[in-house]
Design a protein around this nucleic acid. Sequence first.
DNA 1: TTGGTGACAGGTTTCAGATTATGTACTCTG
DNA 2: CAGAGTACATAATCTGAAACCTGTCACCAA
Lengths: 200, 200
Amino acid sequence: MRAREPLDAEAILSATEDVLRRHGPAKATVVDVGRALGVSHAAVYKHFPSKTALREAVSRRWLNRDRDTLAAIARDTEIPPPQRLRRWLAALLVAKRAKAHDDPELFAAYKALVTEDSAAAVDHVADLLGQLETILTDGMTDGSLQRADPAETARAVFTATTRFHHPGLAGAWTEPGIDHELQVVCTLLLDGLRAARPTA
Amino acid sequence: MRAREPLDAEAILSATEDVLRRHGPAKATVVDVGRALGVSHAAVYKHFPSKTALREAVSRRWLNRDRDTLAAIARDTEIPPPQRLRRWLAALLVAKRAKAHDDPELFAAYKALVTEDSAAAVDHVADLLGQLETILTDGMTDGSLQRADPAETARAVFTATTRFHHPGLAGAWTEPGIDHELQVVCTLLLDGLRAARPTA
DNA sequence: TTGGTGACAGGTTTCAGATTATGTACTCTG
DNA sequence: CAGAGTACATAATCTGAAACCTGTCACCAA
């Protein structure tokens, strides 16, 4: 209709994020996104093939926002791997809890992605597993951790801490004992990871 | 209306179970339960104070049905505690998966109970924790397991295996690698439980 | 040719009005 | 008088027509 600065994917993502926050994932529509940008909803479809793709892209960006904090811990060779693992898991809980609390609408969108296991969710998990694997590999290299297959072990650690990061269980993250419980589980896992290769 | 053998709680529970299986937890009504018993719905209220109480009682009975299998493993002093723990957790997964698969309607009812954490669900968890504690205590007594507080450790083991028993995550129980994954997690946990009391 | 528009088909959601369910009270029977 | 029934108020749920959303189109502007 009129000359505007050309719509780009980033602008659409930001607008979508706002719309999601305002209306929640259930009520947010592509028409709303268009309206927020002063544009028809068909314009949005020039940049994203579907509403699903749009939601995925928004969640991806939202998830990647505090990815670096976590990645920095995973890569921090100053901290001995066992402690690093502990800190990383604690930071993961803190980050997830903050997201769930501060941004419930976007968290709900992310949760939906996980339950229908969309590519964005799968990639997010793969990323986290990779970070875990980094820590474990470092530990195996410097001898502070024992077991052999880092990928399998990373998955086991991730699985054993499901309670603290799976969005479907977010309800429990506000319970008072949760941080302590994570510590106990961490200790148990670390004891296992440090143990000499067992007999059975 | 006519002389019948007097309605008792057990008969109501069985009828409710049938109705739940036929209609699912969302559509099952107290009137249906009455109809199944050839009785008015008000008669049901003579025995149960509310529909919620009735659903809880049904789930309780349904959950207790294979409780003994599990309890038998927990108590089997023939098996060394570490192996016993492994078997118990495997049996728990098998039992839960069977329930989810063979009885989806009642499983859904149970899942609902867990998400609104009703007394029945809480009691069920407490029961399982008690069984875990038995195994751990036995292991600590005979020296095959090391750590100190059995209740706290039981909770940690239960938490670390959330993925394999929480009804909200039942979707993942049919994935092919799940049994192997449980084995890996078990091994990790057992290594931790057997480890000499660690330094950090 | 990329990025935009308005109109539209088909499927889904919504909302008000009608139906059905829950839970209580009082009645009836053995 | 214990236990079942009928009647009923209130809350929840269904239904169907209207509104609305998604995704596509043919067309337009720079």
